[in-house]
Nucleic acid binder design. Structure first.
Length: 121
DNA sequence: ATGCTGACTACTG
DNA sequence: CCAGTAGCCAGCA
């Protein structure tokens, strides 16, 4: 068994993020889990920060508590919020509303099987 | 090598 | 709901 390198992990993470459907959100931790990296949510955030992501729906990745964990005052934070709003995601204060999170999880789950097969087959 | 930082999270009080 | 804490670990100085 060859130990995956950091680059492999980054590639897997970026691919998973690219698969998040329009109007859906997932947490950093979920992406990490799907990438086979449980407990490594920070790696997901780190990866998104390092690669700049013109073609990637990075804005659909949020903190597990439904808030946006980008640096306060950053341009990226403004943009993320705006993009989510434009996709129909609703906010309650600083956090995505609970109903919305549940809906997005429901939409995400059906794709899990295909995604996992993609990475394990 | 070592120490710090951070787009994380779960747990506790 | 908020603050502190303990794990997490890839970059960077």
């Amino acid at each position: 068994m060859i130990k995956p390198t950091a680059t492999d992990h980054a590639r897997t993470i970026l691919h998973l993020v690219s698969l998040i459907p329009y109007g859906c959100v997932v947490s950093y931790g979920q992406v990490a889990d799907l990438a086979g990296l449980p407990g490594r949510a920070r790696l997901v955030g780190h990866t998104l920060r390092r690669h700049d992501t013109e073609q990637l729906p990075w804005h659909r990745v949020v903190a597990a508590n439904g808030r946006l964990s980008l640096p306060k005052g950053s341009h990226a934070l403004i943009e993320q919020r705006q993009r989510l709003l434009s996709e129909g995601i609703t906010f309650k204060g600083d956090a995505i509303s609970g109903l919305c999170v549940a809906m997005t999880l429901h939409q995400w789950q059906p794709d899990l099987g295909a995604i996992l097969m993609l990475f394990e087959g």
